[in-house]
Amino acid sequence: MLRRWAIVVMLLCCVAISGKSASADTLQAGVSYERLWGKLMPRMATLQFAGNMGFASLGVGWKYGKREQLESTVLVGFVPKYDSDKAKMTLTFKQNYVPIHLEPCEKVHWDPITLGGYMNMITGDDFWTKLPDRYPRTPSKFYLFPTRWHFNICMGQRVEFNLRGKEMQERRRSIGVFYEFSANESYLIEAFMNPKYMKFKDYAALSLGVVLRMF
């Protein structure tokens, strides 16, 4: 907990220092804040269904790299109650690499392959990150993987359409749809152990999503 608060304080200090350095000149400060905000401001909003991160997950993302081939997204998801005791929330940190951007026709952008991975954590007392004290540590850890976190790899495709309107097109605002196949670490281990029984549909998950570039 202390470590988390330390990170939050450090981030606030960074913002404060960047503001202080610009405070000598009002105009300069305005430019710096604008530039800083311009860099930090999310570039896209994402709504993703399924994919082992919740029934629906809503998030914001950033694009960067020379050709904007890298994307980072943070999503908050919702897992309905189904047959469990209660509904749950999830938090996902997703990193994508988009090696190829194509424009097959005017106003349409196509990413024929998106590669990535994401860490997903789930809320609730049923789960743990660190092995609880009730379990023995010797001769080896009783359970190897935390139940709260899952690590996924993913691959998919995406198509985006420029939004209408002169301003929208000048600023490359668009709306897109994507699909993705993903698999988490535990299913991948089981797939490796069971080449006969485990088919792609048993260890992989499909997700569908909408991405909006409005910022």
Binding site: F49, A50, G51, N52, M53, G54, F55, G77, V79, P80, Y82, D83, S84, K88, T90, N120, I122, D126, F127, T147, H150, F181, N184, S186, Y187, K201, A204, A205, L206, S207, L208
Partner: peptide, 13 residues
């Protein structure tokens, strides 16, 4: 692949 629309490994769906 609609049966692959998995919500979460611990969804109890």
């Amino acid at each position: 692949s609609c049966e692959m629309l998995d919500v979460h490994p611990h969804s109890v769906h």
